[in-house]
Design a protein around this nucleic acid. Structure first.
Length: 546
DNA sequence: CCACTGCGTA
């Protein structure tokens, strides 16, 4: 079947757009006769034209005709059509294109199948994408990278990393696109170093995307020295690289350095965008001294950078004011928001209430969180604990009932630590670790030692403990305590103990970690789902606000 | 026949 060259059509369109009256072309389609010899190429002409003109209804009409007569256009026209489906979020049309492309045993080129996979990914239909990927005859680096980036974005990290291995096993070499995607899925405890070595070895570390992703992942896993090293080695950077390191410093509680770099960035001639400003505001939540600076940046965003504050910026400000104990200002801000506050916004306020023990506002905020995110187990537990603390037993029962009806299950607390390239997991109430007896003995000795210097287990964690209803005695079996002790047992003194946790750390464990860091002269880093805690010399980088 | 397209970061 003859296909027209899309380049010709493209040229034609750019030179004389007025000649392409789509109404006229549509009439010609309608009057087509199958026996007409001119029919196929002229139909394909029209199809290509409609695709380039982004005339989705007419392009689809032409496609249906082509489909009936088993003819196919060239792949560039289809790629334009799929772009158009994506832009209009026309899922059904997209699926129709898919059916057509594979009908009657026809197999499109790899290039086109890749576009189709990407279409499903961008529509959020990961299963369809996977299906097309699995059935395609030859997969190239783009096919693999598209799937890897989809998995990374969907937080299916194991899948993303598995695909990185599989593609290489099939002889397909990852490129800078692949690495910048897969880094997002990378677990800082485990394989980041390996990945970074591969990147350097094949010389992809100068790519700005890869560089930003490296900075981001090192920062996310608390390895700020490495993030800074990647940043400092930069010869040519861009806004995103700068934003990444500013975000990294802000995340790791080095607000002053983050702001210094922000100023340097401006001097280097880069204009901040939304994510940059989010990080700048986050940097200001670092300590009390930066509250005014944060307010200044927030209020001058529009004027200095032409950016209207979005949800993230409001969220940061609520966090910042909340942390400073300025709860009523935080409430005012949430009421002033132009965009509807989402669950994250309310959770920021709830968190401030939790730390500053404001029960009334906490209840209101928790209800808002649950209205917007009815699956948030932590907030149910927190709300029920608040009610319990005020002896409001009917309300407690109601929250519990809501949890049961909605099928919400509280995750057990779990902490992970890497020792000798092995990940050890400690789950609350789970005694399956081979050295659990030894760990418990050491833990009890440690608690005893700490009590000698004034440690009192904090059982009043009603407004703090998201792990909820454990009895006083089970405090000592909180997973992070077990992981800390195991870290003490496994590492020499100079080595940082790095722990990852699925739930927010409770007040007692936080105090425990601070005291252990001091007494044992260790640096302990715990990453919870929200932030980092660097324990050193009896203090935590979070300044007791988390 | 060739080259080209399509996949990525804060």
């Amino acid at each position: 079947m003859k296909t027209i060259s899309s380049k010709v059509v493209k040229k034609f369109i750019t030179r004389s757009p007025s000649l392409l009256s789509s109404t006229a072309s549509l009439t010609s389609i309608a009057s087509f006769n199958v026996s007409n010899k001119a029919f196929p190429s002229s139909l394909l002409d029209d199809f290509a034209k409609f695709c380039y003109q982004r005339d989705l209804p007419r392009a689809m009409q032409a496609l249906e005709l082509m489909h009936t007569h088993c003819i196919w256009a060239d792949c560039i026209a289809y790629s334009e059509l799929i772009k158009c489906c994506l832009a209009r979020r026309a899922i059904q049309h997209g699926k129709r294109v898919h059916v057509h492309l594979f009908s009657n045993g026809h197999v499109p080129k790899t290039f086109l199948i890749n576009i189709l996979i990407n279409m499903y990914v961008k529509f959020g239909l990961l299963h369809d994408a996977q299906d097309v990927f699995e059935k395609m005859p030859d997969r190239n680096v783009v096919s693999w990278t598209t799937m890897i980036s989809a998995y990374s974005a969907a937080k299916l990290n194991d899948k993303a990393l598995e695909f990185l291995v599989l593609m290489q096993r099939e002889g397909v070499r990852p490129n800078m696109f692949t690495y910048s995607s897969v880094l997002r899925a990378c677990d800082g405890l485990f394989n980041l170093r390996q990945l970074h070595c591969c990147i350097i070895k094949i010389g992809l570390d100068s790519d700005v995307f890869v560089r930003s992703a490296l900075i981001d992942v090192y920062s996310r896993w608390g390895q700020l020295e490495n993030a800074l090293r990647v940043f400092d080695e930069m010869v040519t950077g861009d806004l995103v690289v700068w934003s990444s390191i500013i975000a990294g410093l802000a995340q790791n509680s080095d607000g002053d350095e983050a702001l210094r770099l922000f100023k340097r960035m401006k001097r280097a001639g880069f204009l901040a965008q939304q994510p940059t400003l989010t990080s700048v505001l986050r940097a200001c939540t670092g300590h009390a001294g930066l509250v005014e600076e944060g307010l200044y940046y927030f209020h001058s965003m529009k004027e200095l950078y032409g950016i209207d504050p979005g949800r993230e910026h409001y969220g940061c400000m609520i966090d910042l004011l909340g942390r400073a104990g300025r709860l009523s200002e935080a409430v005012d801000l949430i009421n002033e928001m132009e965009c509807e506050p989402d669950a994250v916004t309310w959770r920021a306020l709830l968190n401030a209430c939790r730390v500053h023990r404001n029960v009334d506002v906490a209840i209101h905020a928790a209800k808002q969180v649950l209205r917007l995110d009815p699956q948030d187990a932590g907030t149910y537990v927190l709300l029920s604990n608040i009610y319990a603390n005020s002896q409001r037993w009917n309300d407690v029962a109601e929250v519990r009932r809501a949890m049961t009806t909605r099928g919400i299950k509280k995750e057990p607390g779990c902490s992970w630590i890497e020792v000798c390239k092995q990940i050890h997991a400690f789950i609350l109430g789970d005694r399956s670790h081979p050295q659990i007896s030894e760990i418990n003995i050491q833990l009890n000795q440690l608690i005893y030692k700490l009590m000698g210097v004034g440690y009192v287990p904090d059982t009043n964690f009603v407004l703090q403990d998201l792990e909820g209803e454990q009895m006083q005695d089970s405090l000592r079996y909180h997973s992070e305590k077990l992981a800390i002790v195991f870290g003490l047992m496994s590492f020499p003194r100079g080595q940082t103990i790095r722990i990852r946790k699925n739930l927010r750390i409770c007040g007692d464990c936080h105090l425990f970690a601070k005291l252990v860091a001091k007494m044992e002269q260790r640096i302990i880093v715990i990453r919870d789902p929200v932030r980092y805690h660097h324990f050193q010399d009896g203090v935590c980088s979070c300044g007791d606000f988390w």
